[in-house]
Design a protein around this nucleic acid. Structure first.
Lengths: 166, 166
DNA sequence: CTACAATAAATGTTGAAACAGTTATCGCTG
DNA sequence: CAGCGATAACTGTTTCAACATTTATTGTAG
């Protein structure tokens, strides 16, 4: 079965109101579709996209920056999608034994979150399946297409008449 | 302020593991960003993206297909993002007076969901702001870019080696 | 005509996201 | 060093999504 056009897929008789709307729906649907496959993979390992991303960030801070852990807010800021409730996100990881908290003695307001060896083990186990899924999802786009795709996605994030930038 | 590259934005020191992953993160982040703006608009009118989409589908069925309403399952199938819990989604619309249920007398298992005049009024009120937001978000992409964007998004949804298609 | 599989919708329950409000600590100013 | 605003994290609460289970109705096979 070929992938039908979005318009046909939604059984809309009339064309889209405007091209921008069509692209928006296309974008949301595509992201949802690809996300869904990852969520299934994560769920099979008792993780969610959010908790997985936190673990990735913590491992990255260790490997690339040589840090034991990161302050909670720092973790929140590095997440792909904004998360206002980092506390309970980390709570779940701690309950699962994948992360731990230590209070920063220099500034007792901040809490350092770090990944445990169990957390690292989970990530290691997931690395290959994740990479394989990435390849399966977008590996059939050529190098050129990927570059153009990224360019368009970044341009789409840059709003027109961004009055907030002044 | 320019939109920094995703890589810089996430404060990752090392490059992405693979191009497919970079594109995936870019996609998810862009969709989340644009979605967030719509969600704010919807919320200001006591709607969510899901409930708004249901209303749109119901209005579309009326206008384009001349139907009074649609069976619940039919509504669920037309939604952009899969929703397993159409019942309570419609519940909320009914509580808000924007939709109503009638039992199909021919097949008493099915429930016909239809939009009320209040629901149509809400949609009418939102039509312009929605269109304006679409234009603001993606209106700065040229016609050519939008076409290519759509093409790439559809290609991205088409998995490689889709063994399920045989 | 009864039994039963299939279908449509509703319900129960759990888990997570969103938002507001609170507590603890810090740094600065008088 | 007392007071105060700013900052970091936590907590309470509501709403929503996801999953499994249940009820009601239909059509169909014996």
């Amino acid at each position: 079965m070929n992938v039908p056009s979005l318009q046909h897929e939604l059984k809309k008789q009339q064309p889209f109101d405007c091209p921008a709307e069509e692209a928006y729906l296309n974008l949301v649907r595509t992201a949802g579709s690809l996300c869904g496959e990852f969520n299934r993979l994560f769920k099979a390992n008792n993780l969610s996209e959010s908790t997985y991303n936190v673990l990735r960030i913590l491992r990255g801070a260790q490997k690339a920056e040589g840090l034991v852990g990161l302050p909670s807010l720092e973790v929140a800021e590095r997440l792909v999608t904004r998360v206002p409730d980092i506390t309970r996100l980390v709570d779940r990881l701690i309950t699962a034994g994948l992360a731990e908290r230590t209070r920063d003695e220099d500034d007792r307001r901040v809490v350092i979150v770090s990944i445990t060896s169990a957390g690292l083990a989970v990530l290691r186990k997931l690395d290959k399946p994740i990479r394989r899924l990435h390849e399966q999802q977008l590996g059939h786009l050529s190098r050129k297409e990927l570059i153009e795709f990224n360019r368009l996605l970044e341009k789409a994030r840059q709003p027109v008449a961004s009055s907030t930038d002044y």
